[in-house]
Design a protein around this nucleic acid. Sequence first.
DNA 1: GATGAATGAGGGTTCATTCAT
DNA 2: TATGAATGAACCCTCATTCAT
Lengths: 210, 210, 210, 210
Amino acid sequence: MVGGKAAASETRSGRGERAAARRTAILDAALDEFSARGFAGARLDDVALRAGVAKGTIYLHFKDKEALFQELVRTMLGPLIAGLEQLQASDLPIRTVLERFADLFVREIYGTRRRDVARLVITEGTRFPELAEFYYREVVARGIGAMRAMIKRAVARGEVRHEALSRFPQLVVAPGLVAILWAGLFDRFDHLDVAGMMRAHIDILLERRE
Amino acid sequence: MVGGKAAASETRSGRGERAAARRTAILDAALDEFSARGFAGARLDDVALRAGVAKGTIYLHFKDKEALFQELVRTMLGPLIAGLEQLQASDLPIRTVLERFADLFVREIYGTRRRDVARLVITEGTRFPELAEFYYREVVARGIGAMRAMIKRAVARGEVRHEALSRFPQLVVAPGLVAILWAGLFDRFDHLDVAGMMRAHIDILLERRE
Amino acid sequence: MVGGKAAASETRSGRGERAAARRTAILDAALDEFSARGFAGARLDDVALRAGVAKGTIYLHFKDKEALFQELVRTMLGPLIAGLEQLQASDLPIRTVLERFADLFVREIYGTRRRDVARLVITEGTRFPELAEFYYREVVARGIGAMRAMIKRAVARGEVRHEALSRFPQLVVAPGLVAILWAGLFDRFDHLDVAGMMRAHIDILLERRE
Amino acid sequence: MVGGKAAASETRSGRGERAAARRTAILDAALDEFSARGFAGARLDDVALRAGVAKGTIYLHFKDKEALFQELVRTMLGPLIAGLEQLQASDLPIRTVLERFADLFVREIYGTRRRDVARLVITEGTRFPELAEFYYREVVARGIGAMRAMIKRAVARGEVRHEALSRFPQLVVAPGLVAILWAGLFDRFDHLDVAGMMRAHIDILLERRE
DNA sequence: GATGAATGAGGGTTCATTCAT
DNA sequence: TATGAATGAACCCTCATTCAT
């Protein structure tokens, strides 16, 4: 993404710009390597090679391997957290909310490299207890809470018939997890039409029959 | 040398019995360590310590670290594959099948150490392409196929209204995945009633309302 | 000192014996390297090479580079501390005490590898504050105290005329320091007859004229 | 380019003056760092930080880390060498010479940063053979020679009774070494009155009793 | 001259694997 | 068979040195 050879043509761009580009290149490369080999299995040598920088350069931007990993996650998933807040407040019909949610998921996570970051959170979470805790507090607990509130309202309005769904909002997001894991493990054998699956899922939750 | 000094202390249990016990102890210990630290992060030193054997002993039973990991998975999940076959043939009502399936999952996977093995397959699958392929072929493809066949029959019988479900049997097992991942990541913050969730899930799929 | 080739002929010697021999070989090699290059400059690779072991073997015996250094010092100078206690109690004529002291120094420190260890304490002490403190408490403070007590007694008996000497017992041991430092820095240019210097020193302190 | 934009801000102080100030700042900072961590342990990053210059600037003034070290020593101890020559020629009473010598030591070395430089020569001398050789030739050999000559004269005059002292002039300077080393290692535990010790030392050498 | 980002060789440490006992 | 000391390749990280700006 940021090639060494391009330096000459970048004469114009300022120092900070180049530094940011390098940082991004390192994060990109790190995502590739962590995804392919996991945190412990990834080698910073390979990250550097892939990013087109020297090994030492990584340490100009990140304190150590763990910081690189954590910043990778924060940088890429952080912005999504803000987006979550809006859903909570919305008073739209539940179908609209779920469709937007599914659409957001497919376009902003499943369809981007964030999918791999999410996979990393899932697969490495156990080894980074604070990371798991952070995501529980900032994303999961809030998301589950918001979802539960919306479902309760939808039940009250008669939009949702399964009252039990409010006790297990996890059921709403379960297909998203399956999509992310399937992509990493089995998509090469059998491609999964995630958008279609999400639509079917919503139809089932809301009892629309074909 | 055979039948030498050690004979007296071997009393009843045969050599093979002791060897098997050791093998099991190593697999048990390996599961603990791999679960806690991942494949790359686990140390055979710790596995040996936990198993109560010397480090070298591991190599008498397993070719190397990777073989230990693969055999751990095969040993613990293998028997389940056989069980899967039976479901396929059954001609019971879909609700009964799903309830048995959920029950089986909760008792035989979620409630046992197999849960951790399943987690390992999910979290380390990417680093073991053949493992992923093996599980795709032996478990996932077959399971998805069987599930799809059953759903189609159920749709034909009018037991299931959502025809799209047969296109995405993944939706049926999605909560199982959530349960396994939740247990490893967030259960310490917020315990999940998995059996309850599975019941709610089935009710939603089959449109029973409370 | 402990050659790898000799292994075959050591079949008889027990495991612990070999381990001790290796430990000694590593300490020997470490002393050489630390003496030649200082703590920071010494490479464990070279220590291992010189000791005839693999680099990893060092870590079977010592936690890390610093522990190796500290144990080197403790192992080699520790026994001397015990010897110090005896001098304190003695009621012999001051000349006898000083002569024995000088003799002990020349034979047990200056004439052995302990000389290099002592040099290391002096040259690296600043970088190992606890080491410096340990030696201050265990060796220097006690030694100075014992020396002062003996000098006071000697002054009272008329064996020593310079009462100020009891205020600065450091003057008694100063030539020992010079000897140790001279050996490391200048002996190759100009050999110093340490035993002779110590005799002259005592004569001066006790005012015997030739 | 020469006499360009910077000219205005340079007002009175010439370019050379500023360069010299920088050089001095670097040497000062280097002394601090080398003293605290030794040659190998000191980081040029820290030297630059402490000197208030960029890391690269050090290389405008010194070829490399070793040159910085060597120049530090030469710059600070060089002037003393000249002073040594005078003593040799003097024909004053030995007591006067020794008192001046002690006074010079306390004021010009022990009481200044030269004390730390001297410590460095002692502690790092082994790792810089040419430095050790240089100091042997320029300082030690000459100093010892001058001292010996003076002592012989003093013996001839009857000022000194211990003829052996001329064989071991090291005994005259030994307390100076003790002072320098004590300052770095133990002064924080037990302060040493160096001036008092030097006076006592001279009294002992010259047999004045209290 | 001055800067500080970038480099990459080097070194401490870990750990899977081997093998003599 | 079982052991665990020994090995050494591999990897993270540091830091002296360079060089484009």
